[in-house]
Design a protein around this nucleic acid. Structure first.
Lengths: 318, 318
DNA sequence: TTAGCTTATGCTCAGGATAAGTATAAGCCA
DNA sequence: TGGCTTATACTTATCCTGAGCATAAGCTAA
């Protein structure tokens, strides 16, 4: 950025770089959030940047639809990663990765594809609070992060580190904030508790559970989850992950799957109805335990009626 | 994105592109929002991508600090633009623009620089609602957008167009939503009411007021403003734009400058105080009209204490 | 047949947040 | 001193939110 404004000519050879696209493709099946992975679940789908398509988005859409046989409902750009040394070691990789978030349905993956759907909590087991705070949070992460904080050179720095940890992880009676997933990942990375952070230096004994990924793909995934967890609260995007018809409980389970925490059932229904986000189809769910539920569909009309909000996560304490 | 996963080798020559950085640098002076411009206020500062620095952010910081002599408080990536033909005409420009939002203070710009500070409402005169909805909104934009809607091929499409217009511009008793600035710009662009949209095809008579910019810089600016208008509501970033000490009214005026609308004074103070975002310095403002106000400073401590919110824009109807 | 389990759905209630307004204080200047 | 301006304290009505109670409507096993 130390250069002159764009108009000035710079030899292209001096500026040539390469670019990749990386996609975080999300689906929710049976109340479990999934992401599309390749390379034996160790990488996000990615490919070289191509100018064939009119825009990055349309290129991504075409590619995903070919892979999954299902239209890609919602697409949004996430972040462009270009930091030196992000792939681990060595000199500056003259390359950027442009990442996207896409929402779709699992359904059938083309068989030929080497792609799979993996549960996203495999990669972030400490992020699933639907059954209360996971045991590994206090049993494993807390003591190791405390040790890391203690290892700071000065008492002041030690206190600062621990305060950062307590805020981002909700320790010491602080609230758990599901949107801080990226900050939590980066903190664990900084504390060298993540395989990706200690690639060659070994020391695997003190690492933290959770499946690793190649390069910085797990960071990109965390970025995508964070964006989605924030987005469902102010934009009605959950519906992109639902079948055409669904019960309110199924909808609620999807929201909970993404947020990683439970919501208050009655209040959730109240919100959906008073915002007129859904309408009854007239049909009733079959093959269920308990009283059969009415089926609903998303009211696409709201999008035209007003600038519409999402799901405000009516939280549940229990 | 139609290619194989990253591990497969692709000759670099086939993928080589170039990248630019574009910066939306914001300051607020005397209650007016400004952006840094070059090229006679017709372009945003931009330059070739360089890997000299550890990250894009640090490169941007260094560059801005050299230009303004003031540290760049807050930096955030905005968007990466890579759509074919975005610069207007011709074939695919094998180039991407990575844009950033930065918050700073105007102060002294290094004299040698060709950079200036321009009021951002020069580029979007319809976005300033601090003195009520601007006249040109109903006098000019409304009829032209209505004509554009009417020009759609079918009655259904005409209705859809007009509904879109009404929602994004707050016509017909709908609420004005200051965050929709990018959607408004894109609508005007689509309706060919923006000089950038009709580069060669002329027809300047029916255009809409507001200073144009080169390439897609005005779109990038709109993206930055939209992001900032959203951000001030949930993150305490306004303070990056303030001097070390300020009165609550000055703070309020800055928020209003960014949002383009007025807030309720008493409620604004209540929010600031009950969130403990500011603390009294003990000093009193001098050289003012009316009763002198206490001076406040930002409580940096809140950032460490908790995941902190911003300013919820206690709106004012008048 | 019915008790007991499950999920669906309707309704109430208290506390807190919000929008708006009233009232008073404290400077200055004509 | 009256009138103008801005600062600051308080009040009020309304809406939103979190939480819980109660009842409905299916099923299965005793």
């Amino acid at each position: 950025m130390a250069g002159p404004p764009r108009k000035t000519k710079v030899p292209d050879s001096a500026r040539a770089i390469t670019a990749d696209l990386v996609a975080v493709l999300v689906a929710v099946t049976d109340g479990e959030p999934k992401i599309m992975t390749i390379a034996n679940a160790a990488a996000l789908p990615s490919g070289p940047f191509e100018f064939k398509h009119r825009s990055l988005q349309s290129g991504l859409r075409a590619w995903v639809e070919a892979q999954t046989g299902h239209p890609l409902g919602y697409v949004e750009q996430l972040y462009t990663f270009a930091d030196r040394g992000r792939t681990g070691d060595g000199p500056a990789p003259h390359s950027v990765s442009i990442s996207y978030l896409g929402l779709t349905r699992e359904d059938q993956l083309a068989e030929r594809a080497e792609a799979h759907w993996s549960g996203w909590y495999d990669y972030f087991p400490w992020e699933d609070h639907r059954a209360g705070p996971p045991a590994l949070l206090t049993k494993l992460l807390m003591p190791r992060l405390r040790a890391w904080a203690k290892s700071a050179p000065s008492p002041t720095l030690q206190r600062e580190r621990w305060q950062r940890v307590a805020i981002t992880f909700g320790f010491e009676d602080r609230e758990w904030n599901e949107e801080l997933i990226l900050q939590r990942y980066e903190l664990l990375f900084e504390a060298a508790l993540i395989p990706e952070a200690v690639r060659e230096s070994g020391n695997a004994a003190t690492l933290v559970p959770g499946r690793a990924m190649t390069a910085d793909h797990r960071r990109i995934l965390a970025t995508g989850i964070a964006r989605l967890r924030a987005k469902i609260k102010y934009r009605p995007v959950v519906f992109e992950l639902m079948p055409a018809e669904f019960t309110l409980l199924q909808l609620q389970r999807s929201v909970e799957a993404l947020a990683g925490r439970l919501v208050h059932k009655q209040n959730f229904r109240r919100l959906m109805e008073q915002q007129q986000l859904v309408e009854e189809t007239g049909a009733i769910a079959t093959e269920t335990v308990g009283r059969p539920a009415k089926l609903f569909r998303f009211r696409h009309a709201v999008l035209a009626e007003r600038a519409v909000a999402g799901t405000k996560l009516p939280l549940s304490r229990t």
